[in-house]
Design a protein around this nucleic acid. Sequence first.
RNA 1: GCCGCCAUAGCUCAGUCGGUAGAGCGGCUGAUUUGUAAUCAGCAGGUCGGGAGUUCGAUCCUCUCUGGCGGCUCCA
Length: 633
Amino acid sequence: MTVRLPDGHRLKCTAGTGAGEALARWKPDEASRFLAAVWNGRAVDLAAPLDRDGELAPLTFEDRAGREILQHSAAHLVAKGIVEAVPEALPTVGPPTEEGFYYDFDVRPLTPVDLEVARSAMDRSVRAREPFVRRELTREEAERIFARNPHKLRYIAETPPDEPISVYETGRFVDLCRGPHVPDTHWLEGVHILGFSAITSEKTEKGPALQRVRGVGFPTAPQLAQFLKARAEAEARDHRTIGQKQDLFFFTEEAPGFPFWLPHGMVLVRELEKFVTEHLDAEHYSEIRTPLLFAQGVYETSGHWEHYRENMFLTELDDRTFGWKPMNCPGAMLIFRSRARSYRELPLRLAEFAPLHRLEASGTLNGLLRVRELVQDDAHIFVTEDQVEAEVVTLLEWVKQAFTTFRLEWSYELSTRPASFLGEAADWDRAEAMLEKVLRASGVRYRVSPGEGAFYGPKIDIHIRDSLGRPWQTGTIQLDFQIPRRFELSYQGADGKLHVPVVVHRTILGTWERFLGVLTEHVGGRWPPWMAPVQVRVLPVTEKHAAAASGLAEELVQEHIRFEVTGTEDSLAKRVRSAELDRVPYVVVLGDREVAEGTVSVRVRGTKEARTLSRAEFLSGVREKIRRREFDP
RNA sequence: GCCGCCAUAGCUCAGUCGGUAGAGCGGCUGAUUUGUAAUCAGCAGGUCGGGAGUUCGAUCCUCUCUGGCGGCUCCA
């Protein structure tokens, strides 16, 4: 029997040789890193016997598939621990996730004590190096073993008849599972339970909630320690922490989910607005402002009453129900409809930065990342069908320019026709093909989510990750063939006939709130000079240098540079420290030397040494950094 | 909204086995006038998140409400 390996090596084995054994003969030095194998395209345990000629490759923790196998094995270990802690707990499923894994249990609400007990049981198992043993069973055997667990019985019933039923044993714990798994629990010394919560889903909505235990696994304890350290560091970058330190925003009990923007935070908002507005001007947008409240009928027309009513703030007026707008669409539609329109006006690009209100459930609020009042860099572009492509191309260029400025990496997600959709399938196909073509040409990574489009059209969502690797959806570009129809919008074409425009709903940064939340964490509070609430802090060495400081201050005012001049009550060292902690991009010290020479001593954020520059050099340097919106000072 | 946890000074936190509280930072005042990450001293800040209950007595125990955190769900 011959086994072919990834480097082309051929290994002669007797039938029944284990996959792990074969791999160890191939690469004895690396064998300790192999946690599973791929045998003829299928992931298998290292213990799996090789029974014919074929191709064999190792899996390590560095492989995505290998990582998932370890996470899933970790989930089994957690299940073993929980069942020891709470014997009546019924395990359901325990898949790997992006970060780690979870395991859902049908059980009374868990307590922190349950987790402690489970943790010690898991530790014991890891120290005992219990092997994961695979067994294939008949349906009857399996049904007998899991007779007490209706969830597992359902999975058994759902297994296709031609697929074997397998279980994995870890010590005395047996779980229904396809596998594969790591060879033994020693591989799981870096497993950590992150927390638990009740989960509600369509399946469990009616019955009592399942309890989900989440965790993460690494092959070794030091790797886990490193992960936990990175997590602790992430907490220091939390936008809520930085927002408080830098006086950016706050929340109060009196208005849960509604941010208060403080002066420093408002500077950030205004800078973003300026940045976006420059683009809008260059691309011939027009800005509008429309009402915050509309009568119910408008939302019935748009379809939002049906789909979104429970998330709207409502109010009564003259026996009619009004809703605070959760998006800007109605205003733009009504402006378009307010008079006869010609094809010569298209594309008509209407931008609106209005406060939107969404009644988000209390449990979902999360700092600036999920709020009840928000502002989007929103616009509605009214086009003919053959203008759509050029608009989308321009938008993706703007996405590139914007996210490059912030040094954020982004990717796209194309969401296509959902099961229930409005309009003709052929129109959808054409629109989707067009979007995909534009995406392909952009050169940026994208993925397709079939069936995830809005009911009125396909869309491209923009995802960014912060510096800690967490993904966030920000902007979205949506094609809409339906709402214009529902609002009975039309323009007169060159042919003299009336046509319904297509609307491109688009927001690029998403909302100021969420974008600034992510950006705060991305930059760790070290704002690019052009955004920094305080761009320059001037530190006169002693009181006698105050006049020189005022002189510099006047020049800074003329340059429209945001600055502060400190008093001299505190020591210079303390004021430098304080400026550094406040992440001020430029700290200027003025003392005898500088006054005599007409220079400034500049300390650039993050550098230890001060540089001496003429005032003019300093001012023009800062001005240029700001003008070019450079990321670093 | 669901599950768990949390709520003490502006901030970060300590504390009271039930006898109404303390530190550091910040703030204010004074002294110091300082050369690139913390000068010194003094002072003022708290019905211990709100309400109810148990108790001679509750910041501490119980219930409840509100808000926050971690998840779930959701984001048209």
